[in-house]
Design a binder for these strands. Structure first.
Lengths: 111, 111
DNA sequence: CCCAGTACTTTGCAATACAAGGTATCATAA
DNA sequence: TTATGATACCTTGTATTGCAAAGTACTGGG
């Protein structure tokens, strides 16, 4: 048992939420998302992100378009579908609830 | 894909943290923990909690003592070990970091 | 004696983050 | 033309772990 495992574990639960949120702000491709997550200290590797994007797309929350690049192979630029936007709103609420629950549970006051 | 799955997923990451925190406040047995979590709207079932307690105990974060009950079988009352207390402090910091990361990532400001 | 209530445990399954390796495209330079 | 490096996307195998469901065991009342 180490603290890194815990961090990774906590990260898991909010990954989809963060990724949908990032995509909601701007059309982005995978490397953009990785960079944004990294900036926020939410380390994620390619092997995690790609399957997740595919899953979200298959669930109808995302769509994408190919775009040529001047410096390499073409990129998939992702955007939120209407369903994805609705889902993101629900996730906002879910996250707020979770924060409230954790704060209540871990408050330093002895019950 | 439904929102319930997302809630469950988010819950996972903080379960151990919440449970350690609950135990840090008072010696409790499994049903106490379940009730506290339920009060905080963090629904957890027995099949989740018991293996988790066993794992935390095997990792040296918890210990327990048996106590007779007047209304059923004896109960395991859990308490934090010294290592468990240290670990809880680290988890406090980890949780704070995660909240900061998520807030940064999901802030409504277009980057 | 059985039954209901309480408490702890175990088994099998499904979801999924990650490590590691693979395939494909493009620009540059020998 | 061929080799190299950078970029981008994809796949496979593994380990973890929450959960549903079923099981075991102790207690007291009818």
């Amino acid at each position: 048992m180490n603290i890194e495992r815990v961090k990774s574990q906590m990260r898991k639960g909010v990954l989809e939420y963060c990724i949908l949120s990032i995509i909601s702000k701007d059309e982005v491709y995978a490397s953009d998302i990785l960079q944004t997550l990294k900036d926020a200290k939410l380390i994620v590797v390619e092997g995690t992100l790609y399957p997740l994007l595919t899953r979200l797309k298959n669930d109808g929350l995302l769509n994408y378009r190919w775009e040529e690049s001047t410096s390499g192979p073409p990129r998939k630029y992702y955007g939120l579908t209407e369903m994805g936007q609705k889902f993101l709103q629900e996730m906002d609420a879910t996250w707020e609830e979770l924060v409230a629950s954790v704060n209540q549970t871990t408050s330093k006051t002895k019950k």
